[in-house]
Design a protein around this nucleic acid. Structure first.
Lengths: 133, 133
DNA sequence: CGATTGACAATAATGATTCTAAACTGATAA
DNA sequence: TTATCAGTTTAGAATCATTATTGTCAATCG
């Protein structure tokens, strides 16, 4: 379990391993609070500062990315592959979209920008909300 | 000047007109604070609550949209046409991209979602930051 | 063995946003 | 004109997410 994270070259403390464990394979785009609430079960002394510090460290190492899908609070994603999201406009449920979209922009549109990539937020209605309508 | 906003069917107080005037044609994606700082020049008694209340009202009327381009604070855009943004990864400068991208998703990807639209965040290097590198 | 470093926890501080309560405004009715 | 009423504004307090600070401890290094 630990071996997996050795190459991060950060100190693998029990708290950090618990956070990494929670994030591993997690598809729920958790907030700092979500992480805190889960990890505190095993580490009753866990503090928010540790969650934020660890997330900052992981962000810098590039193993976690910060998402902009929520204006209320930051959300984090352990899946750092370039992927996109579709969000239900009703219930705000979020689904990952694993596909690359190479979108080119004309020079007229980019006005001198060098285009490096894109991140797409799709929106729509999830199955449950469609039935409810 | 006022006629333009009559069809909003909200009470057009002087403060609201000042906010609407600041937003009209604004391409800077201002935060609540940006709006406050500008409008307080004419209305020294203006309060933040009024800015937020007005933004909420305008959002509900669909004349302003809340952007998710900044994790630190909310930003607002009076341009409600479906458009996108390109953000400089260095200086965070933002440029509007006015073009429609119809992107279809396979059923396998959407898993029951009814796709309604998309919003794309492009990223890259702006002209100034390219030269600086 | 000290000395140093990095991480932790608790807590204080900050900054954005929301809430509250009282005063104000403008329209309408008496 | 005056009274009333709904909606708006204001100032400031409250809340919530995030960041900074401080003292402590454990692991590491010379």
């Amino acid at each position: 379990m630990e071996k997996k994270y050795r190459n991060l070259h950060i100190k693998l403390t029990p708290q950090r391993l618990a956070i990494l464990g929670f994030l591993d394979g997690n598809k729920t785009h958790p907030s700092a609070e979500d992480i805190y609430r889960s990890v505190i079960k095993k580490f009753p002394t866990m503090s928010f500062a540790t969650v934020y510090n660890t997330l900052e460290a992981l962000k810098n190492k590039g193993t976690v990315q910060e998402l902009k899908i929520d204006t209320d609070k930051r959300r984090y994603d352990p899946d750092i592959s370039s992927h996109h999201h579709i969000i239900c406009t009703e219930c705000k449920n979020i689904l990952d979209i694993h596909k690359d979209f190479r979108i080119d922009l004309s020079e007229e549109l980019t006005q001198g920008f060098e285009l490096l990539g894109n991140s797409i937020e799709f929106y729509g209605l999830c199955q449950k909300c469609r039935k409810r309508q």
